Computed example of a mutant assay.
Amino acid sequence: MLDEPDGSRLPRDDAEAQLFPRWATLLARLVLVSLVAVPLGLLGLLMAVQYMPYVTGQTITPEQPVPFSHEHHVGGLGIECRYCHTSVEHSRFAGLPPTHTCMTCHSQLWTNAAVLEPVRRSLAEGRPIRWRRVNELPDYVYFDHSIHVAKGVGCTTCHGPVDTMPLMRQAAPLTMGWCLDCHTHPQAHLRPEGEIYAGHWSPPPDQEARGAELIRHYLIRTEHLTDCSVCHR
């Protein structure tokens, strides 16, 4: 309203009366929403990143000094896990085969193949092949291969169908949640002794009942499987 000399007031345009432009209200609302949405979005992103293959290593195939094919050696030739990973039943680590294990066959087969030159050089120089670890856990995680295979957990449960892998890759995310899924419900994953090293084992329709029986057979104390000290020592 505008004052006239006689004291009367005249209306004026609403836009002229506003201290701030109309879009200022929208901007203020967006800022207020952003103060809440942006931190929550960043928190969600940080939570999601830890499950991405780039972080967990799942599906990633590291380059190796020799392109060893599990598909050929395990799936094609039928070589069992324990032939190369000799310490899997009595040690934390499954172990890697020494060079002379490779040369048991390759001193007679593919003796001049260029792809096997690092193997021949390793034997001649007495230096082990520097394989890159495929499945790697943080230093603060304790994992023992021997107790898992002794209690009926098969190799492919964690390592995937290695007999179909031309080059070895990490099949599982190996996150804490992934491990706890098995520790809280072990009967879904347990196998009889004769199937632990089987490449294509799949649970039968009555796995719940068989798994419960295997828990008793292997004397698994399920009440302690989720204790912190089991994996963090």
Rank of each mutant, 00 (worst) to 15 (best):
T56K: 01
E71W: 05
I129V: 12
I79M: 03
N135F: 02
L32D: 09
P204D: 01
W178N: 00
Y140E: 09
I147W: 03
L42T: 09
F20E: 07
V55M: 12
Y51W: 13
I196A: 01
H232E: 08
P204M: 00
D6C: 07
W178V: 00
V88H: 03
R120T: 07
T104H: 13
Q64I: 10
C155P: 00
A124M: 11
I60D: 07
V31R: 15
G194A: 06
G152C: 00
E117H: 08
L180E: 14
M168N: 08
G126T: 06
V31C: 10
E71T: 10
P118N: 08
V31E: 08
M47K: 10
R127L: 11
P205V: 06
D13R: 14
S87I: 05
P173F: 04
T25G: 10
W131I: 05
T101C: 05
A198D: 00
Q207K: 06
D14S: 14
P205C: 04
C231V: 12
D144V: 14
G78S: 05
L180K: 10
Q187F: 09
V74T: 03
L174E: 02
F143S: 06
M52H: 15
A15D: 13
E117R: 12
G199D: 05
P173V: 07
K151M: 09
Q18R: 15
C231P: 07
C81Q: 00
L19C: 10
E63S: 11
P67G: 08
P186E: 00
P67D: 09
S146M: 07
Q64T: 06
G152N: 01
F93W: 08
Y140A: 08
H90G: 06
R233N: 11
V149T: 02
H232A: 02
H232W: 10
A172R: 12
I215H: 07
L219P: 02
W23N: 05
H148R: 13
C179E: 06
M168D: 06
L43W: 15
A37H: 06
A17V: 11
E16M: 11
W110A: 13
I147D: 03
R127T: 13
L174P: 03
R233K: 11
L96A: 08
A209L: 12
V31I: 15
G95P: 08
G41C: 11
A172I: 05
